[in-house]
Design a binder for these strands. Structure first.
Lengths: 243, 243
DNA sequence: CCAGTAATGTTATAAACATAACACGGCATG
DNA sequence: CATGCCGTGTTATGTTTATAACATTACTGG
């Protein structure tokens, strides 16, 4: 048993350093046949996964699910992407911007050119994840307790940190936008951060797809004319008739 | 040009939802031949990468580099893993623990069983990343400005948040441990958080490999007998003769 | 409308990969 | 010291993937 154990140990180790390792490489590494490595991997599905002949760490629940176009349509990802393309025009280089959580704004992050220098404040894990990969971004993450439903962090210190920052533009997301009942989201814990970010920002943009218009969700956080513009897949609609 | 553009757009979109997509699936999705998708992918190496017939988002600098055993040996990963195995014994279920940044403790995180319920406080991105995947962990991330060198966040609010937490055990890392000159790390911004975490914790463990013993690094943050134990690949050495 | 070029598809062939079947050696247990 | 199991390697076979060459279609500028 011990030789085998050593192998799976070594393989986990190698995978901790690199994210993938090729079957052939792994076999050469521990001086056994590819077949043996295959069997090791197959026997430990909780540890290892595989993409063709490449061994990867386990826990990629996204691999199994076939990509359903309807699911993508349902989630309005094309609309979100398009809205983000419009929103990108409001993102000025060398500024400090706040980026809200939610899947819409991850598209915005993806669209930021690699050479754009920017300071970004965020509180969502998936947003931070993408920003870390970009070399010219200074990232400020608001911490707190992690909420899996929105992949975001929430806590008192987040709003505190925000108060000490000078923010040029805030990009907010919402899952409900109603003329009378204002702008709302699903999670209450997002509200204090959204509000504080809007308060601190010079410019406020709401980015969402048209399907959100007319909907009301539980957590209200702003009125429509608190924003300088609402940006959807059909373009921007200037507001701020208040000021 | 426009049809092609639409395709790479759609492919980016699909990859934003799932992390990988199979060549065949992608071809079916946009109603072109696999060959065309191959060419699309090959023409945009800055957007897409490939693992066999699986298309993945670009920016995996770890793929190209062949896995060098010497580099692994150099980084003492086996020793770190072993030290973490010993450290795991001090991790009690249902407690609140602090986990420091640094590659050693990412091993500890990897070793936490999936069914262990735990509240974990951390401030390193790679630590948080691994913890999010674990269902029974409540994660508290200390935010702040991101420092790429240590993949960690630093800021005043981190220490503040810590003061409001009750921590049972703190697992610290270090890159220098010297009998006379105490325990030190590379980055000064880690010091306030390390100190506060130690101050708040009931039990304090230093986890590092033997190569760190006798070394002194720039940022001093504790003395040796501030710890309840120092845990290395050879096992734990109880201390705290102070108390 | 035509030539020329870019984009896409098709096919052929080689390489890589997956899987099953069987062979060999060690090393426990009776 | 045989028996049988376990771990491992080898081989054979079919499938998938990679690449290049060529055929077809679509698009462009004149």
């Amino acid at each position: 048993m011990t030789a085998k154990d050593r192998r799976i140990m070594a393989l986990s180790l190698a995978l901790a350093e690199r994210r993938v390792i090729h079957l052939k490489e792994a076999a050469a590494l521990m001086l056994v046949s590819e077949m043996t490595v295959r069997r090791d991997v197959a026997e430990n599905p909780d540890l290892f996964g595989t993409l063709g002949a490449h061994i990867i760490p386990a826990g990629r629940p996204d691999l199994e699910a076939p990509y359903a176009i309807d699911r993508a349509a349902e989630s309005h990802s094309v609309a979100k992407r398009q809205a983000s393309i419009y929103a990108l025009r409001y993102l000025q280089p060398d500024e400090t911007v706040f980026i809200d959580c939610g899947s819409t704004l991850t598209h915005l992050v993806d669209l930021i050119p690699a050479d754009t220098r920017l300071t970004v404040v965020c509180y969502a894990f998936n947003t931070a994840d993408r920003l870390i990969a970009k070399p010219n971004i200074t990232l400020i993450l608001l911490g707190g307790v992690y909420h899996p439903t929105s992949a975001s962090f929430a806590g008192a210190s987040g709003a505190d940190t925000l108060s000490a920052l000078g923010i040029n533009a805030a990009f907010l997301s919402a899952s409900g936008v109603d003329q009378q009942r204002g702008v709302s989201c699903e999670q209450f814990h997002e509200v204090p951060i959204k509000r504080k970010a809007m308060q601190m920002a010079q410019r406020r943009y709401l980015v969402c797809d048209q399907s959100k218009i007319g909907r009301v969700r539980p957590a209200h956080f702003a009125d429509i004319d608190d924003f300088d513009a609402i940006i959807t897949e059909t373009g921007e609609m200037p507001l701020n008739t208040k000021a």
